Amino acid sequence: MSAISERRERERAQRHRLIITAARELAETEGWEAVTTRRLAERVEYSQPVLYSHFNGKDAIVSAVALDAFAELAAHLHRARQDAAAGPGQALRAVGGAYLDFAVQRPALYQAMFILPTDLKFASTETPAPMRACFEEFVACFPPENERRELFAEVAWSALHGMAVLSESGRIPSGWQEERLDLLVTRFAGTAP
C-alpha cells in the first residue's frame, strides 16, 4: 500500500470515528430523535454524501454507536467483576449493579444497544466481539462446573434488562432496584448476597 493510500485510509477512519462520536454526543445531549444525517453533516462539517459513504443511514450509525457502547459496557462489567469479593454471588451482584448503573447513567447508549433498530445480532456467529465480551462477563459470574452457566447468564442478563427498561419507563419504581438485584442474586447464586 502506498503512502497516499495509507493516508487516505487513516483519514477515512478518522472521519468514521468523528461521525460516531458526533452521533453519540448528539444522542446523549438531545436524544436519538435529534440524530439525523443533516444534523450530523453540519456537526462534523462534511456533506451528507460523505456520511453516506461511511454509513448506510441512521440505523447503521446507531449500530456503530451501539458497538462502541458494548465495548465500554464490557470493560465496565469486567472491572466490576474483578473488584468483587470472592463470596458466592458477589460477582453477579457486582456485574448486575454495574449493568443497571450503566443503563441509568448512559440512557442514549443503552437505547442504541438494546432498544433502537440495528443489524447487530446476539448469540450468532456474526455477533461482534464487544457484544460477546459483555455476555462473557455474565457467564464468568457462574462457576465453570455449572454446565448451564450460559443459560443462567442469559436469564440473568434478561432479568436485568427488564429491570432497566421497566424502571426507566416508570412502570416499576426505581427505588426498589437494589432489592430486585438482591433477589436476583439470591435466586441465582443460591445464597444471600
Score class of each variant (00 low, 15 high):
M1S: 11
M1I: 02
S2L: 10
S2W: 03
A3K: 14
A3W: 09
A3V: 13
I4M: 12
S5L: 15
E6N: 13
R7P: 00
A13N: 10
H16Y: 12
R17G: 01
L18D: 10
I19A: 07
I20P: 00
A22S: 13
A23N: 02
R24F: 00
A27I: 05
W32S: 12
V35Q: 07
V35P: 04
T37K: 10
T37Y: 08
R39C: 01
L40R: 08
E42R: 14
E42L: 14
Q48T: 15
Q48V: 15
P49S: 08
V50E: 09
Y52K: 03
S53P: 00
S53D: 13
H54E: 14
A60W: 02
V62E: 03
A64S: 10
V65R: 01
A66G: 06
D68I: 00
F70P: 02
F70G: 01
L73S: 03
L73F: 01
L73P: 00
H76L: 10
H78E: 15
A80W: 07
D83C: 03
G87T: 10
G89Y: 08
A91I: 03
A94F: 10
G97P: 09
A98N: 05
L100M: 06
L100G: 05
D101L: 13
D101I: 06
F102G: 06
P107R: 14
P107Y: 13
F114R: 11
I115D: 13
L116Q: 07
T118A: 11
A123Q: 12
T125N: 08
T127R: 12
T127Y: 07
T127Q: 15
A129H: 07
A129P: 02
R132G: 07
A133R: 11
C134I: 11
E137F: 05
V139K: 09
A140T: 09
E145C: 02
E145W: 09
E145Q: 12
N146P: 00
E147A: 15
R148I: 07
R149E: 09
R149D: 06
E150L: 02
A153M: 11
E154I: 07
A156F: 03
A156Q: 04
L160V: 06
H161M: 10
A164L: 10
V165S: 10
L166N: 12
E168N: 08
S169I: 05
G170D: 13
Q177H: 05
Q177N: 05
D182W: 01
D182Y: 01
L183K: 01
L184H: 02
L184V: 02
V185H: 01
R187H: 06
F188R: 01
A189P: 01
G190C: 07
T191H: 14
T191L: 09
A192R: 14
A192F: 04
